[in-house]
Design a protein around this nucleic acid. Structure first.
Length: 584
RNA sequence: GGGUCUAUAGCUCAGUUGGAUAGAGCAACAGCCUUCUAAGCUGUGGGUCGGAGGUUCGAAUCCUCCUAGGCUCACCA
């Protein structure tokens, strides 16, 4: 495999030197080379413990011999040192910075892009809210994660298809139709569709307890809907369209879009073929009145395909959907961003596909995520103790607005009202998004207003602020006619302080962070990398005056660093689904 | 009970696939704005990596057992 980026050459070069000195292949060595925990210990290190057996020498002795070997005295190295069982390599910082920044300045927003995914279609199913139900913070988790994972795979060159598997089918629609005919208000429905639908849905459940006849009517209405009766289908369609319209408002604010909204209803007519297929392959077994596929060889409980009343169930729908998707897209990967409570369900579905002989089952991935919950209780639509995403965004944007307004007065920035509103929207929403991608996805999130609306430290506003600050310097410099040093400029060699080097090294690690994020479906790895870049830059910013120096070349070099930082933060935040702003 | 995930600073989390003195952010305390945006920066304190064994040069990381908790285990999705 060819190493893509230039700066990787440094690690590669170190491996080559070591290979020459030790006789071990450089591809084996490159795996072992690591970055020391402390700055004073150098930029790369090679632990010699593994060699001590074959060479029959103590690790520190091997390290000493290697460090003294003249082969390792390369021009790009400042020094090579033995510490304990390690050989530590010190890179000439200016050279390193020049090479990395040249790459970033040259590539711009294309930096860290890869073509590894060319022609390999990746499907990402995410968000998937239920029609007629409020969009709460739990839905935000899958939406934010799925959006980010989609962008990450696109960055690596994969064609991505975003799928919103809407919960738009099932017996609850029989209830909704019944309820709407009894108590529905057409004006209210158009005014605020989900609010009205939820109102009659809750009322239905209350009335149902007193009047069992409602249950029968709901069941009958669902039967009519399923058999394609016009009146019921039209009503269902209207509920669906109006709900989608309302969801679209949220998706627009989050910058999320989908390639299709094929929900459960879309796949329902494809289920009979699945049942036939399983039957023909002799996998369908009658058990306790239901039709199931036994999965003992996978050490899983049986998967129900048909209920004892002959109707379908979500497993059969997911199997039908997977088959349809493979036929349609011949996907390289089929990703489901769905909560971890459904882990078993997906293992069963993938196993049924495997048992039926579909080898693409190994390309199906369930990307689970934790629960969003309060400190003391669970979210529950029925109990009404949910937080609607809209309210959360509103709070966050309002708080951001206050801060920016205050800053605008304090600093006399002359920002217009509309500009302040625009910036608040982006920063406020970014803050909410960030809370979902700042740590490992499988962790539960204990919802707290304080934490959601904390704009200091490791947060989106911090990242955006750092970007805006850096942009501000670049603007000021441009006014003075000073511009960042171009790629390959000798001026870049002047950036050799610890702080400048630290920022650069973190920028250099970004492509690797993106790859690891893709492999593990963990956007937080990008969040962390971006946050580290911002922190390192702020340290530099605080201790170094960028524009007040005396040497023009030095100013240009530092501006180049500002520019590379902006590019990196822009790339990182974009992959998380967060917008940046030029001023704040 | 079976499966599965988790347990790291007061709180929220990382820990690069087994490496050097376990790191960030909040919170606490002490500092830094006549200088490029203080949503920032610097410093201090804070740890039995849930517990006990084991594997080896070396373990927060791998294995076994134990403890506590989350999720889940056939006709909801």
């Amino acid at each position: 495999m060819k190493l893509e980026a230039n700066f990787m050459d440094f690690k590669y070069k170190v491996a080559e030197l070591l290979s020459e000195a030790s006789g071990i292949s450089s591809s084996d060595l490159i795996e072992k080379i690591e970055i020391p925990p402390q700055r004073e210990l150098g930029d790369y290190a090679f632990p010699c413990f593994v060699l001590s057996k074959s060479l029959r020498k103590a690790p520190h002795q091997i390290a000493g011999d290697l460090a003294a070997n003249p082969i390792l005295q390369a021009p790009f190295l400042e020094k090579v040192q033995q510490v304990g069982g390690y050989v530590n390599f010190f890179i000439k910082k200016g050279e390193y910075v020049k090479e990395v920044l040249s790459e970033v300045l040259f590539e711009g927003e294309q930096y860290a892009r890869s073509s590894e995914g060319e022609g390999k279609t990746v499907l990402v199913e995410f968000s998937s809210p239920n029609i007629a139900k409020p969009f709460h913070v739990g839905h935000a988790f899958t939406t934010v994660l799925g959006h980010s994972i989609s962008r990450i795979y696109e960055k690596l060159g994969y064609p991505v298809v975003r799928m919103n598997h809407l919960g738009d089918y099932g017996t609850q629609f029989g209830k909704l139709i019944t309820a709407f005919r009894l108590w529905g208000d057409v004006d209210a429905l158009h005014e605020a569709p989900i609010k009205e639908l939820l109102r009659i849905y809750v009322k239905f459940h209350d009335e149902e307890k007193k009047n069992p006849d409602l249950t029968l009517r709901a069941r009958e209405n669902f039967r009519l809907l399923e058999s394609g009766n016009e009146a019921e289908v039209n009503l269902w369609n209207e509920f669906r369209e109006l709900s989608l319209k309302e969801f679209a408002l949220i998706y627009d604010r989050l910058g999320v879009r989908f390639d299709n909204y094929n929900g459960e209803s879309y796949y329902s007519d494809k289920i009979p073929a699945v049942v036939d297929m399983l039957n023909e392959k002799g996998l369908l077994i009658e058990s306790e009145g239901a039709k199931v596929v036994m999965l003992d060889e996978y050490k899983l409980p049986p998967c129900i395909i048909l209920k004892s009343d002959g109707t379908t169930i979500y497993a059969s729908r997911d199997i039908a959907a997977a088959l349809y998707r493979y036929d349609t897209y011949h996907f390289h990967k089929n990703i489901y961003v769905v909560g971890t409570p459904q882990a078993l369900h997906f293992r069963q579905v993938f196993s049924v596909l495997d048992k039926a002989g579909y080898t693409f089952s190994k390309d199906c991935v369930h990307v689970g995520f934790g629960l969003v919950k309060f400190a003391d209780m669970k979210f529950s639509t029925r109990e009404g103790n949910i937080i609607v995403l809209d309210d959360l965004l509103k709070e966050s944007v309002a708080k951001t607005y206050d801060i920016i307004k205050a800053n605008a007065e304090l600093r006399n920035t002359g920002m217009s009202e509309s500009e302040i509103r625009e910036i608040s929207e982006k920063v406020g929403i970014g803050a909410v998004i960030y809370t979902f991608v700042k740590s490992g996805r499988e962790r539960d999130i204990v919802f707290s207003w304080d934490e959601m609306l904390d704009f200091e430290g490791d947060t989106a506003p911090y990242l955006i602020y750092t970007y805006a600050r850096s942009r501000s310097i670049l603007r000021k410099a441009a006014e003075q006619g000073i511009f960042p040093a171009p790629p390959e400029s000798e001026s870049l060699l002047l950036l050799s302080t610890e702080e400048e080097f630290a920022v650069t090294r973190l920028i250099a690690e970004m492509p690797d962070a993106i790859k690891r994020a893709a492999q593990s479906y963990e956007p937080f790895m990008i969040a962390r990398q971006t946050s580290q870049i911002a922190r390192a830059f702020n340290r530099f910013y605080n201790n170094t005056s960028i524009l007040n120096g005396t040497d023009l070349h030095e100013k240009e070099a530092r501006l180049a660093l500002c520019s590379a930082v902006c590019t990196s933060i822009a790339i990182g935040t974009n992959l998380l689904g967060i917008d940046i702003v030029e001023r704040m």
